[in-house]
Write a protein that binds this DNA or RNA. Structure first.
Length: 593
DNA sequence: GATCAACGCGCG
DNA sequence: AAAGCGCGCGTTGATC
């Protein structure tokens, strides 16, 4: 491929304009950019990757014949590239290009992302070098990726490197686009491409955060952590680090009266006592249990949500700017990192730290019980669908089926237990595990036998769901894959049935729910057009927007409509089954729950 | 000092 | 043999 690459390095404005006019005639362009840290942030790690801390040095534009124009923005005004935006671009991990170009004030056309194309056949996100090697049979040396892109005189090798990547994007797309269409996965591909600018916009804006109260809360947590640590020192002895599973396990083993050692579960690899909160709560004995659980709780909060958050406070905006990875999980859900604001503790005092920018408010809605609704739709289980059709309460219905009574006779404890059964069942949970989660997560005691019976009654109550689950396991065993409505597949190696059962049952359900959310995200730009409303956050079944108060009513309507229509995009037959998500508004994330 | 496996735990 | 799904990321402890 490289042999036929013709690189045109452009620094002259009139030549640039001429080239841009020619390239704008192409049906599609491969595009890549190179960035460099601004002088003020030269010593800051990865500043060159952050649009606020970096400049765009090169924009490389590849066309089908294998020619690559390399525009040097050190010598050219960025706006000279504007005519190129009449042509679709193929990029790789286009989130990066979108954020940098948008921050630089350049319009960005609809992006085709070769990373997504690859994701749809490779089952995980891969970088350009790996994809190039695999799909094009061409190894890409990435050593120049981190070279000095701010230097006055770029080396020929740098220009070649830059050009090569842009062309690789185009060639990968040429290879994979027909394959994705043939596999019937282009709808999901298009949803990812459509969601890309929505999420990249969120990443660029960031999430406003209340740092003052965060510091206050950190102090409270630290005090509590230290208090319980001191308690543990007197109970366990100064030589035992309560944060060390190994040491805690050894302490329990040498103090047999402190726990039920006979029944205490062991870790898989090292054979120590499991020292998770669940095991400590179930198999430990007073007086060690409470201090240990309290210590673990505040230790976790301190470790994950204090200094680490401060480290992610952006030097320019002061906000959090997490990265949202489309297709980041095996089921097609979005994953989030740096920091992962999808795993924020549900305590109100912490969620209250997530606030809109000054003068705005948050509005938020989530899909109610989306995975159960999706399971009903995928399996076409009439009993389940009937419950939702009549705006019934599935937990109550299941509770009635388990106890063999009428739904009106169900008491709160029974309903709570049924919740555990409903959710556990979706993932192929066994009786012992169900009994444990029922106790730990739902505060309901049941014996393993009762759990077994509950699971059986569930299967009897929803026979089509049971059949569907069995069908998924069979597909995993015989075809070695299961898939979502839009064709995202999960492959299974040949192995024992037990290993894949839960995964095979859950993946299509979780994946379908993710596709619904993806559709809603795709609908947002049009629905919010003309309104001062932007995406603030999304967590699997929830969308949160920041809006100006004047537009709150209209935005709430648009959000609800996007979510309803997004659901129907994946399950057109669901009209009478789904309930409209309720949109809440408030001055923080805690207030919209 | 850097890296890795193992474990644990926050969320949906 | 038994095992509820999907993540990101923290510490511990072993190893290089």
């Amino acid at each position: 491929m490289l042999d036929h690459t013709y690189i045109h390095y452009i620094t002259d404005p009139s030549i640039a304009a001429q080239q841009v006019a020619t390239l704008a005639q192409e049906p599609i362009l491969g595009v890549d950019i190179e960035t460099y840290p601004l002088p003020a942030y030269r010593n800051r790690a990865k500043a060159g990757l952050d649009p606020y801390l970096a400049g765009i040095r090169l924009v490389q534009v590849a066309s089908g014949a294998g020619r690559v124009a390399v525009f040097d923005l050190l010598h050219l005004p960025p706006t000279i590239l504007t005519p190129l935006t009449t042509v679709p671009w193929v990029v790789f991990n286009g989130d990066f290009e979108y954020r940098h170009l948008t921050h630089a004030g350049l319009p960005v056309p609809r992006l085709q992302d070769a990373m997504f194309l690859d994701r749809l056949i490779s089952h995980r996100l891969r970088d350009l070098a790996e994809v190039s090697c695999d799909i094009l049979g061409q190894s890409l040396d990435k050593t120049l990726q981190t070279s000095d892109w701010g230097t006055a005189q770029l080396a020929p090798a740098q220009l070649e490197y830059a050009a090569r990547d842009a062309l690789a994007c185009l060639r990968i797309a040429e290879q994979l686009t027909p394959r994705i269409r043939l596999l019937g996965r282009h709808r999901l591909y298009n949803l990812w491409c459509g969601a890309l600018p929505v999420l990249a916009g969120l990443e660029l804006r960031g999430q406003a955060f209340d740092w003052e109260n965060h510091a206050r809360l950190t102090g409270v947590w630290q005090q509590k952590r230290d208090y319980w640590a001191a308690e543990l020192t007197s109970l366990l002895g100064a030589g035992v680090n309560p944060a060390s599973g190994k040491q805690v396990s050894e302490w329990f083993c040498s103090h047999p009266t402190a726990g039920d050692l006979k029944r205490w579960p062991k870790t898989a690899k090292t054979g120590l006592l499991k020292t998770g909160a669940a095991e400590v709560a179930l198999y430990g004995r007073p007086p060690v249990v409470k201090p240990l659980l309290e210590f673990k709780k505040y230790q976790k909060l301190m470790n994950t949500y204090t200094d680490n958050y401060v480290a992610h406070q952006h030097p320019v905006t002061g906000y959090l700017h997490p990265r949202f990875w489309l297709g980041g999980t095996r089921s097609g859900r979005i994953s989030v990192s740096n920091p992962n604001t999808q795993q924020v503790p549900r305590y109100d005092d912490f969620r209250a730290l997530f606030i809109p920018p000054a003068g705005k408010l948050l509005i938020s809605a989530d899909y109610s019980q989306i995975e159960l609704v999706v399971a009903a739709l995928l399996s076409k289980d009439q009993a389940m669908l009937d419950v939702y059709r009549h705006q019934g309460d599935l937990h109550r219905t299941t509770a009635a089926a388990i106890a063999g009574i009428n739904p009106e006779e169900v008491n709160p404890d029974q309903r709570q237990a049924a919740k555990a059964v409903n959710f556990g069942n979706l993932y192929g949970q066994g009786p012992a595990s169900l009994a444990e989660t029922a106790y730990l997560d739902y505060q309901v005691s049941m014996t393993t036998d009762q759990a077994r019976q509950a699971l059986q009654r569930f299967d009897q109550a929803y026979p089509a769901l049971k059949a569907w689950k069995r069908q998924q396991v069979a597909a995993a065993q015989q075809l070695h894959k299961v898939q979502t409505p839009l064709g995202l597949a999960r492959d299974f190696e040949v192995q024992g049935v037990g290993f894949l059962q839960g995964e095979a049952q859950n993946m299509p359900i979780q994946g379908a729910a993710a596709e619904i959310l993806m559709s809603a995200l795709n609908r947002l730009p049009a629905a919010l057009a003309g309104l001062d409303a932007q995406l603030y956050h999304t967590v699997h079944d929830e969308l949160t927007l920041q809006v100006t108060p004047d537009d709150a009513d209209a935005a709430a309507k648009a959000l609800q409509e996007s979510m309803v229509q997004g659901f129907l995009d994946i399950f057109p037959e669901a009209e009478e089954v789904i309930t409209k998500p309720e949109v809440k508004r408030g001055s923080s994330w805690a207030a919209v729950h």
